[in-house]
Design a protein around this nucleic acid. Structure first.
Lengths: 131, 131
DNA sequence: GTTATGATATATTAATAATATATGAAAATC
DNA sequence: GATTTTCATATATTATTAATATATCATAAC
């Protein structure tokens, strides 16, 4: 039950973009600063672009910057975009649980998922910076 | 950020043991009922024994039963025993985060971990059965 | 037109999850 | 007390996913 490097790197990097709000930062510099493989980070950042959390600028002096203000970008959105989903059990995604789904456990997972989601929806980048 | 089959199977199976409280059930029957590989389940169940959530009985007519009452066994304990830890980020376990750990994200993870733990500590097998 | 970036697709490697094999030890039953 | 049925442990194999790299192209700045 771990968040992968995709989500963790994304969050790290988004904090960096928030710290330099407005500035266009090249991935090369960001990847070096965080000791992350540039090519891996490119893939991660693509997801953030598709989720409209970052905007990209091509060409020389290009790079990325936040698509919204830090207060409008939540940790939930970042993790959702990069990890795929926040739910802690796959059957929640697929709407199928193992065998016959008489699954007494389901309500517990539902509540847990809701709990996690509620919390992370309420943590924005600006909140992170304030800490 | 998914719970693996170890945790999910464990929970499924513990619910079954709770439904048959007092009875000694052989793993063979449980594995068949849940369509889980017997040998895989044996490994999972070992962890539950070591965590003192199940007790084992060897020999013919042997098997396992709950080590405590269903109300004394929490989902947190089951997942902890089988998944290793409930924390959602590895650096929480290792007490090391990536680079220099100026890590603004840390507080967020801490709170999230606490949230998850608090919730799951309060869901016992008897609560699951009541649902 | 050359350089510095991002965009996309695919390939490779590493790590982990899931399952299986093999062997042993204990207890019940006959 | 031999046989069967279970758990116990260690190791091996396979499948899946995560992480990274390679290759090629597109765009914009200078």
């Amino acid at each position: 039950m771990k968040i992968s490097t995709k989500g963790r790197y994304a969050l790290q990097v988004m904090v960096e973009f928030a710290e330099h709000e407005g500035e266009v930062l090249s991935l090369k510099s960001v990847a070096e600063a965080h000791h992350i493989s540039l090519k891996y980070l490119e893939q991660i950042v693509q997801r953030l672009v598709k989720a409209e959390l970052l905007v990209s600028f091509r060409g020389a002096n290009g790079g990325y910057k936040l698509a919204k203000t830090p207060s409008e970008i939540t940790v939930a959105a970042i993790l959702c975009a990069t990890e795929g989903s926040l739910s802690v059990v796959t059957c929640m995604d697929k709407h199928v649980c193992g065998n016959d789904c008489h699954c007494r456990v389901r309500k517990c997972w539902d509540k847990l998922n809701a709990l996690i989601d509620d919390y992370l929806q309420n943590v924005s980048l600006s909140k992170l910076l304030a800490d």
